[in-house]
Every structure is written in C-alpha cells, then in structure tokens.
Simulated scan of single mutants.
Amino acid sequence: MGFLDIPGLGVAHYHEYGIGSKPMLAFHGYGMTGRQFHVLEKSILQAYHVYGFDHFFHGESKLNGWTEQQILAGMPRAMVSEYVEEWFKLHGRQRFSVMGYSIGANIALILIEEYADLIDEVILMAPDGLSVYKGFEILLHKPWGRYMFKNVTKSKWLAPTMLKNLKRVKFIDESLYQIAYNEIDTEQKRQDVYYTLNLIRLLKPDTVKIAALINQHHIKCRLIFGRHDNLFPMKAALPFIGSIENAEVHEVAMGHWLVTKQLDEYLVNLQQ
C-alpha cells in the first residue's frame, strides 16, 4: 500500500495486490475501499498488479483542509489527472490500464480522456458515467434535489423511510435497498454519503470523446453489467457500447453487486 499527496486535494491512499506485472489503477464503488477487487484473484489479478485507490470519505484517504462549502461545490475535474501524475512520480511514467466499478468508473473514464495514449485496457463493471442516472442528477444538480438530499441525510428517519418507499414503488430492488440501507444507518454514514456524492458531482465523463479515443488508440475495452442491476443497467449504456469498435461486453446473471468471487469464476471460465 502507499499514499499519494495530491496538491490542493489531500492524501489518496492505495492498496497493492495482484501477481501480474502490468500496472492497473482501480477505483472502487461506494462503501468499499481500494481492496474491493482483490476477490478477482483467479482472473484479473493473474495478469495485473492493481493499485486500488480509496475514495475520499472511504478507507485512509483524507482531504486536506477542505471546507464543507468546497466539498459541496465538488472536486474540480482537472484534479483527477493528479492521481496519475503523482503515481508517475513514485513509479515512473509508463503505460497502464484502468478499472472502475459503479461510481469509481467515472474516474477511470476521465483518465481515458487524459491519458488515452498510455492506456492499454479499461475494465468497467456496473459503471456509472456511461449515461445520466436520473436519481444522482436530481440529488446533485437540481436545487430542490440538493435541498432534499441535505435534509434527508441529517435525519434519522427520513432516509430509511425514503428507501422503503423507493423499494415499494420498485424504483430500487431488494439488493439495492440492502446496500443503501447499510450505508445510512448511522449519522456518520449518512454524512459520508452526502459528502462523497457531492465531492464527485463534477466528474462527468465525455462519453463521445472517450469512445473516439478508445477506437483511435485501440484500447482494449471490457464492459460488465448485471442482468438484474436496476442502478446502472446495460440498456442505459447501449449508445456508448455501440460506438466502441471492439468492445467486449458481458451481461451476467447478477445484480449491481458485481465484484464477487462469482464474477471471478465467470471471467475464468471465459478463458477456458
């Protein structure tokens, strides 16, 4: 493991694992840490040495001197490239790959915009960023949604009640309900949700530009979706998928919770 001191942002902590020699920068989903991908030991970790970063408000990554006002305004998009520049200072400027799950895919995608000429492969699992998710758009960019989000996260009963109602009208399924509920059952967890999603609110990838760069630089592209994922389903990403010349696309019989040993076995079986 190690730390990157990113100017103007803070200290980003990363985990190292995998027996492969090729470097891969990886970005996890909400509520996890950079260790999330260690379960892919029989597949991806055979080929790659993963540097898995903790998001801020997760693991050991810490913002440096940021006020609440700055957090709510959002992390400037340009700061994403500083992860790589600081990583280069430690490990040398070299070719690398990127991987992202759920909200972590936004960072992986933005890195393609900035470093397409150095990237060998991108692996995205249940990715945010390939289409606009209306729920996040409302909570993070609409004035009334931001007001509601703030008040819900400060209340002990509003957040659980809202989740139950969303499940009742089938906006989310049981698996998403359980994932979300486990992240709002304490005041600290609710604050971390609020701060995390606001911090990354400006990290919107330019999917048209990214598709063109993937094609231009012949970047290997693997996209993995859960067939029962109601949060980031494959159908929402079809325009992006259609614009990639040689995308390897998989829709597995799982929900949003994809990074598991079950997925590892699926990927291993593909190679046989």
Score class of each variant (00 low, 15 high):
G2N: 06
P7S: 07
G8L: 08
L9S: 02
Y14Q: 04
Y17R: 02
K22Y: 10
F27H: 00
F27S: 02
M32Y: 09
G34E: 00
V39S: 07
K42H: 15
L45W: 03
Q46V: 12
A47E: 15
Y48P: 00
Y48C: 05
Y51Q: 02
F53A: 02
F56G: 02
H58W: 03
K62G: 08
N64E: 13
E68R: 13
Q69W: 07
A73F: 10
R77Q: 12
A78M: 12
M79Y: 15
M79A: 14
M79P: 01
E82R: 11
F88R: 04
G92S: 06
Q94H: 10
F96M: 07
V98L: 09
G104R: 00
A105H: 00
N106Y: 03
L111G: 00
Y115Q: 05
A116V: 07
L124S: 02
M125F: 05
P127K: 01
K134Q: 12
I138Y: 13
I138G: 07
K142V: 13
Y147V: 10
K156L: 11
P160Q: 07
M162G: 12
K164D: 12
K170D: 13
Y177N: 08
I184Y: 04
D185K: 11
E187A: 15
L199C: 08
L203C: 08
L203S: 07
T207A: 06
A212S: 14
N215G: 05
H217G: 05
K220G: 11
L223E: 03
F225K: 00
R227Y: 10
H228K: 13
L231T: 10
F232I: 09
F232K: 02
A236Q: 14
P239C: 09
P239R: 05
P239V: 07
F240C: 06
G242Y: 09
S243K: 11
I244S: 08
E245I: 10
E251L: 12
E251F: 03
W257H: 14
E265R: 13
Q271L: 14
